[in-house]
Design a protein around this nucleic acid. Sequence first.
DNA 1: TTTTAGCACTCGCATGGACAGAGTGCTAAA
DNA 2: TTTAGCACTCTGTCCATGCGAGTGCTAAAA
Lengths: 355, 355
Amino acid sequence: MEISGRKKLILKAVIEDYVASAEPVSSKALQGRLDLGVSSATIRNEMSELTELGLLEQPHTSAGRVPTATGYRVYVNELMGQGDVSREEAAEIQQGFDAPSAGFEQMVADASKLTNKLTALPSYAMQTAHGAVTAQRFELVYVDDHTFIIVVLLSNKSVQNRLVTLPTTTKAETLTKLAALFNASFTGLAEPELTVERIAATERAAGDVNGVTAVIAGFVIEILMQTKAKRTVVSGATSLLGHPEFHDVERARRVLGYLANEQELLRLPAPDSDGVKIMIGPENLAEELRDSSVVVAKYDAGDNMQGIIGVVGPTRMDYGKVAARLSYIASGLANMLAMGSTLGSGEIAGGDLDE
Amino acid sequence: MEISGRKKLILKAVIEDYVASAEPVSSKALQGRLDLGVSSATIRNEMSELTELGLLEQPHTSAGRVPTATGYRVYVNELMGQGDVSREEAAEIQQGFDAPSAGFEQMVADASKLTNKLTALPSYAMQTAHGAVTAQRFELVYVDDHTFIIVVLLSNKSVQNRLVTLPTTTKAETLTKLAALFNASFTGLAEPELTVERIAATERAAGDVNGVTAVIAGFVIEILMQTKAKRTVVSGATSLLGHPEFHDVERARRVLGYLANEQELLRLPAPDSDGVKIMIGPENLAEELRDSSVVVAKYDAGDNMQGIIGVVGPTRMDYGKVAARLSYIASGLANMLAMGSTLGSGEIAGGDLDE
DNA sequence: TTTTAGCACTCGCATGGACAGAGTGCTAAA
DNA sequence: TTTAGCACTCTGTCCATGCGAGTGCTAAAA
């Protein structure tokens, strides 16, 4: 389909006006706005054709025009300017990342909060590793004869621990021995490879009769499984209610319900590579999002770590601005994570030791 | 103020009818419901007096009656039956607690989810320790020359860790020595007692020139501070929208905004001892909750651990039922936590090792 | 003194008509 | 191809009307 330059200008103007005002846009309003040197009747004719092309629609016969999902799509693909991030926003983002945060999960959560703040839209984020997560290093910390701590360093650089209290007695030497055995036999293995046979072999090697080996192995399996089950964090779900399209409670509830469901969020499509993906209205597979839009950025923080961060909002949103901020935040986050994995978040705490 | 038995009966019936229907209650409806052997006119007279007493009110002159906050208060204090937990619900709660969960934080979060499910109201929960949290045990796990893990067992039985990566080299022996020094000098101390002098002393004792001691101490301080900053978890905020009083988006937004703010939630009053506290409408100090109610239970899980779990909802709620479920869940949670700290969550994972 | 039947009264809410305003679509001329 | 002009359509608001629910009051009954 071929659409004239003027039609494009008009479509762009309709969308930008509508995004700003939430009101159907009239031919007269455009005439004032566009300064094309043509009358409102001409614009009316063009709008009428844009409507036939399925890019605009009328809420009712004598109302102005409103973009359709297809209209937004054309806008996003061809017409929209590169949104930019203002100096103040960039500063705010920097500041958001400068605040000390404990561990990768926290950084991702902070980035999501920041996104919510800068877009006024609910934001979601999740971080994943390519391939399977394995244990890299085990440690068993003796606390007392009935208590010890399991510490596992995972291949995605996250550290997990469990406090174990048992009725049976476990000596410090036993733990030392077991930790060595686990480090020898179970590092680099993914969860399904921790078979009963291997565990039994370790138990024999340790000369363990109390079943501590099995208990520890159980926790390790649990940890690996929980890490495999990717965690999603959602920030600022309530912001949705600030947008007029969600003043209808039922509609808001559908989307908020969707956001509250981690499993669903995981199924949202992500960009193929680094960059931003935009899904407009009915382009969303999820029924609940059919009248909303999703903008999501993917980032790669090296070291086998990657993740996505996105927002959900009304189809009437400033896609350029949102996409720009999102990708700015995503790359900032990627930097922070990459830095964290080489320089250590030690930097952060080391700085202000004395207060 | 003295109110007759019949007035009490009528007040109770008005409240229970209104809670069920969300519609103002008429004298005729009560006549059918109560079977007092009196006419609607008599009931009307009583209702009129209850209105003068400030226990009921009329939305408009010719409407039925609706309870006031004071009315609910009298109901809660004197009239309401002991809500009970059905067999199915008890089973569901049990089941909710049986699911394996990792660590105390997770158990509390699960209990909050369960509460949300059983009350259809947003639920919040937080766990605190009496007095200051101190470190009980330190461990430093060597990963490679530039990487190690700090593991701290806290007095509230939670284990925290940090992965540290430094540009400088730190040998395994150094870490072992440092861990011993930290265990000797810093256990049992609260955050403000980790003074610069003590840290410097440890640094000298360790012969540390690279500043690792300071980095570790920094993390420990951070961990203690974060633990002191109590964490609140909120579940099912969206459920609020299911109640007709929150079909007004602005009103819903106020309360949801409040719930999203951890700092605010921390300021909510808690019951003085074990038991349930109910705050009705304007009894709430927080402006945002002035037209909502809060029901909150406190539990004590021994071992210096205690916490609260509560719900926020419309003043029109079934206080008896909510309070009963809440205290049932709270005591279940207390049990689980107490068990966890003696028998170990080891029990949980130990069970199903082979699948 | 308390209860009750009866009735007038009030108020909310739904319905329908009238009207103004916004914006379009179409036609005929430039 | 553009435009001026005009008829047409649809929304939103206002007002009047009527209905129904429920009360408050009064005067009689228990």
